[in-house]
Design a protein around this nucleic acid. Structure first.
Lengths: 129, 129
DNA sequence: TGTAAAGTCTATACCTAGTATAGGGTCAAC
DNA sequence: GTTGACCCTATACTAGGTATAGACTTTACA
């Protein structure tokens, strides 16, 4: 199949697929006479794996490491476990930050009403502090 | 005062201050004979305002809009209120996304233990789906 | 068979909010 | 006069794509 079909089947844009290739994540199995990228079913599986990883917010470098690890079936998978665990820690931390931000924003919001003028705006006053 | 002092007093790096200037957020009041940027107390207040806004994750464009609004003291401040409100909506949404991600990651984590081999790794198996 | 449309190719620029350099100029102290 | 601290501009880089421009290939239809 050509890149357009792979794009539709995978839900990744054509540019994204080419971008992943440039990053060394993912290669077309070969090229047609007219220099078109040709993919097969295993390409689709590989791309879905990448997409799944991205949906977990793994970076491209981390995905590369996972792919490397996958190529060594007899090694320990502890690095995979560590990766996921560290991501959980990071996400938890980020949620806490955003919760704090939300509180600050809500305090801001309650400091003013729509019917004021700029010079009386409670939000702007808080921002000046 | 020169940029180094402003940097220390504001907690923004020198490069960041120059970057804000390039973005049109913030200007030195004038230049010394040797072409050094010269700032005064009002510069520090202005920079702190920008920093405060950035700590709320307002974008540079949004901060520009706020600064524009501040220059019209007699206009309505409803755009300011809307901005803060929309940010609260966005942050709330992002928190929800991250909470979902956290659940997914924790399911991943519990699918494997450190003592397995790559080919038996529960995490990698889930990622293949 | 001709041609128009759809698909693909590479290369490049752009996005955010800075950070990090290179290569030079300025200023104060010793 | 020279050392060191400070400052200047310009440029490249970061992450994960997205969006073009300009050219080539393939497909469909008359």
């Amino acid at each position: 199949m050509k890149i357009g079909e792979l794009s539709k089947k995978s839900g990744c844009s054509i540019q994204t697929i080419r971008f992943y290739e440039k990053q060394g994540l993912f290669e077309a199995c070969n090229r047609s006479e007219g220099n078109y990228r040709i993919y097969d079913a295993s390409s689709l599986r590989a791309l879905r794996f990448i997409k799944q990883c991205r949906s977990l917010d793994l970076t491209i470098i981390e995905i590369k490491q996972l792919l490397d690890t996958k190529n060594n079936p007899n090694k320990s998978c502890s690095s995979v476990n560590n990766l996921i665990h560290q991501h959980m820690v990071d996400v938890t931390h980020r949620i806490a930050e955003l919760e704090e931000l939300k509180i600050t924003l809500s305090e801001m919001a309650s400091a003013c009403t729509d019917n004021r003028k700029v010079k009386e705006c409670g939000v702007l006053q808080l921002l000046e502090e």
